[in-house]
């Protein structure tokens, strides 16, 4: 109970800190939305050139983009700033976080909570809403459940990827932007029907690393379409399991990373 009050206090402090600089805060809020808008525009432009991509129409593809970008925007909002970890590790400022009576990860997330990214979340959810409206989905209780569950599972999944790639910094301070290949690269991967990818690449990312279950398989289940790649319909419900698996791995790696932390001389 007390811990939640502590977290709330940290969150409020962050909001108060960023709003100290009012003008720059507003610029950032709107500047940040741009990025997400472009992701969706890319897909729309692609469909200007061809009516079908990987066997999917524009409407269907937008549902995949919507699921992926709603989940990603939420994860990026809640967890994305964990990539600042490498600066903390390099400068040794993680020390100050580790001597407080709260677990390090939630503290870091709240201390850096990117309020400026709120509009991105709104935009991601709007895209999802539009996509749902644009498709003629035959609603069943199971599908209603799925439309709520999928973005949440995607959030957990992307959040885990963020934490995993940030944890690299514990072992390898100069990890630079390698992590971004998996976070932003992963988001781009999940924005398209996976049938467009070459087979070994798809096997690796979609099935082995689990990105195919984030948006593509659930979209098929929502639309009631058979998977052109042959997975059964229930594969659309695997996303929470995949997300849970990713979260478990991320938590383990994070914990190992904290123990490996070397700090710096002072």
């Amino acid at each position: 109970m007390g811990e939640w009050r502590a977290y709330a206090a940290l969150g409020v402090a962050q909001i108060r800190s960023v709003t100290v600089y009012r003008a720059s805060f507003l610029v950032e809020v709107f500047g940040n939305m741009g990025a997400t808008v472009f992701d969706v525009l890319t897909v729309l432009v692609l469909f200007r050139a061809t009516p079908e991509v990987g066997g999917f129409s524009l409407r269907e593809a937008v549902l995949i983009v919507g699921l992926s970008s709603a989940g990603f925007a939420l994860a990026d909002f809640a967890v994305g700033n964990v990539d600042r970890l490498k600066t903390y590790v390099r400068a040794g400022t993680l020390d100050a976080v580790l001597v407080r009576p709260l677990p390090a990860l939630p503290q870091l997330l709240l201390m850096d909570l990117p309020i400026r990214k709120t509009l991105r979340v709104v935009f991601g959810l709007v895209v999802l809403g539009v996509a749902v409206a644009a498709n003629d989905i035959h609603w069943t209780p199971l599908r209603l459940f799925l439309i709520v569950l999928t973005p949440l599972a995607a959030t957990v999944f992307f959040g885990s990827i963020f934490v995993l790639s940030a944890s690299l910094a514990f072992w390898w301070v100069d990890s630079g932007e390698i992590g971004a290949a998996f976070t932003y690269g992963g988001r781009d991967f999940t924005s398209y029907p996976i049938s467009v990818y070459g087979s070994w690449f798809r096997n690796l990312f979609a099935y082995a690393l689990g990105f195919g279950f984030v948006a593509y398989q659930p979209a098929l289940a929502l639309l009631g379409r058979a998977d052109p790649l042959g997975l059964p319909a229930w594969a659309g419900f695997l996303s929470p399991l995949v997300a849970l698996g990713a979260a478990t791995i991320a938590a383990g790696v994070w914990r190992a990373g904290i123990r490996h932390y070397r700090s710096t001389g002072s």
Binding site: A9, L10, A13, R16, T93, R100, S266
Partner: peptide
């Protein structure tokens, strides 16, 4: 060399925050 205080907030508020952090 490592601050426990909130850079952009008045000292008084940092102390108030720490009260919640330490419960």
């Amino acid at each position: 060399q490592r601050s426990q205080l909130w850079w952009d907030l008045p000292l008084r508020e940092s102390f108030e925050l720490l009260r919640h952090v330490y419960r």
